[in-house]
């Protein structure tokens, strides 16, 4: 499966759900991130049951406020 995460290609052997994807890309602060799948927001409660397929586009949107919780640690 090849999907786009924040504009970059990401491949996985099998279909992942969103929680698994967050872990696989080592997303920072996964408990606070906002997730968009193909342009639509995904409710946090739906993360475990939302499975990705080839060609999906996922955006991880992070809090950025300065001084407090921070965006991805790259």
């Amino acid at each position: 499966m090849i999907v786009k995460v924040n504009g970059e290609n990401f491949s996985a052997e099998k279909s992942l759900n969103i929680d698994e994807l967050l872990a696989a890309v080592k997303a920072d602060q996964p408990e606070y991130v906002t997730v968009q799948l193909n342009g639509e927001f995904v409710e946090r409660a739906d993360f475990p049951k939302t499975f990705l397929k080839d060609g999906d586009e996922i955006e991880f949107l992070y809090f950025m406020g300065g001084g407090q919780l921070v965006a991805t640690d790259k």
Binding site: Y32, T34, L61, F63, G67, Q68, L69
Partner: peptide, 21 residues
Amino acid sequence: RCVFPKMPPKDAVPTCRQAGV
């Protein structure tokens, strides 16, 4: 709030490293 519905918890205090810009 459409994007970030809830404020992050108040007990999440940044480390010094995280406050650089």
